[in-house]
Design a protein around this nucleic acid. Structure first.
Lengths: 246, 246
DNA sequence: CGTCTAATTGAAGCATCTCAACATGCGTGG
DNA sequence: CCACGCATGTTGAGATGCTTCAATTAGACG
């Protein structure tokens, strides 16, 4: 149980509520099995019956579904601290795939151990439940974007969400954030073609809202970008302090 | 605590796992406050901080968000047995609205009572958690439809979902099901204009997949409709027997 | 440097939207 | 029981946001 793994999970839960020292101890002593994945590898697949959950420790992963015709729809993006298959604790069969986007390190924990932890510490159980509820809140926001917003607003919104979530785990510097997703992957998430994502990036740049670099992005006009994306971070249900300055 | 309310909630939980007699007793003795709503009334609103949860006993409700410009995006549809604001137990602030579509009867239960129930019966707690996870699974499927499927497939999929869910609670007769949603409301759910929903209905009829009546719909070709909508009921995570014959 | 992946741009096509008109059905009051 | 009014459903025609196909450029890495 390496320090990095404790750190990511502990930070995640702390970003949600205050742990007592007993709870902290219990989480910290959870035995993880650490595993490395290359980019574009599946962690678990549609129809699988997982027996463990994974905490992302490093890198980026996504949930996705395969569409008839060969394409895929990305359902959510996951960064360090996320537990993207926590639902498998109570939903036996996977109804989607979970895979990496970049190189990633994950910590694997057996379902039984998590169940025991939650029985012994009901408040921790509630905190884990809460993380799955926040997941659902993010899904709702994505539905809204896909159903009712233009490509311009959708992309702006996605960038806002990534910025706030990455800032909450200390991965941003000022208004710079890492962005290793390809435009094709962003298209798979936003339900847009690669070509149109490219044109939409161009439009966001032309509106002086962002600057793009190789594998990072700078927000030039944060209020403007939020407005363009109709972004209100409330749906992320972060504690006030994790929203950070600005 | 009228029999109808017990019935809907009990059936819901039974459709998810086997209750012991003690658990059954505990659920059955939950004190509900029954309330009636007219069509198109809000049960709770964005930014509210609910102190109770509602079980739909009769009628239809939906979650929705208001979009800049006045439109709205419907996020999910809810029928008898659903607890569409169960998330408020752990997410203080509503990030969307919850309103009725038709006339509806709901049973209200205070958060505290639910929390006590779950502390006393952890397996019931898991069952409630599971219902919110199934909600999230439905969101994922909607994201897939909105992001990657044509209007034709989206509408077919929605009808399949409504059919299976209504059949699971005994609201269908053969291949007939009630359908009180207006085409405008369906458009708000599918991210389509009212006009295009109308044309898509016409196309589904022309393909001999469905027949439409005033406030009900008959599925003429169930395998065909499922194929058209790329519908696989696995994401609803129903127990096998509630999937019923066929 | 050559090779590979990702980003960029142009041009034509199409799914879906908007605007507008009209039809149908149902409830209500006279 | 009929007549009106309102909500819902239906259809036509033109506009547009996004897609697809195709080609080119730029960057990263051995």
């Amino acid at each position: 149980m390496p320090p990095a793994s404790q750190h990511a999970l502990f930070r995640k839960l702390s970003s949600i509520f205050d742990l007592t020292s007993a709870e902290r101890e219990a989480v910290t002593s959870l035995p993880f099995h650490v595993r490395e994945y290359g980019p574009r590898q599946d962690i678990s697949r549609d129809h699988d019956r997982p027996t463990q959950c994974c905490v992302i420790l490093e890198g980026m992963a996504c949930r996705y579904k395969i569409i008839r015709g060969g394409g895929r729809q990305i359902l959510s993006l996951h960064i360090a601290g996320d537990i993207p298959d926590l639902h498998s604790l109570h939903l036996d069969v996977m109804d989607h795939n979970l895979g990496t986007l970049s190189h990633a390190t994950v910590g694997l924990v057996h379902h039984d151990l998590l169940r025991n932890l939650m029985r012994a510490h009901p408040r921790l159980g509630d905190a884990f439940w809460r993380t799955t509820l926040i997941d659902a809140a993010v899904f709702r926001e994505w539905i809204t974007g896909l159903g009712a917003r233009s490509a311009f607003a959708r992309l702006a919104h996605l960038l806002c969400e990534l910025f706030v979530r990455q800032r909450a785990i200390g991965q941003t510097a000022g208004f710079d954030m890492p962005l290793t997703l390809t435009q094709g992957e962003i298209g798979e998430a936003l339900g847009l073609s690669l070509v149109h994502v490219n044109r939409t990036f161009k439009a966001l740049r032309a509106a002086h809202l962002i600057e793009t670099h190789r594998s990072s992005l700078t927000i030039r006009d944060w209020p403007g970008l939020q407005f363009a994306g109709e972004f209100d971070p409330a749906y992320l249900h972060l504690r006030q302090q994790t929203l950070g300055p600005q």
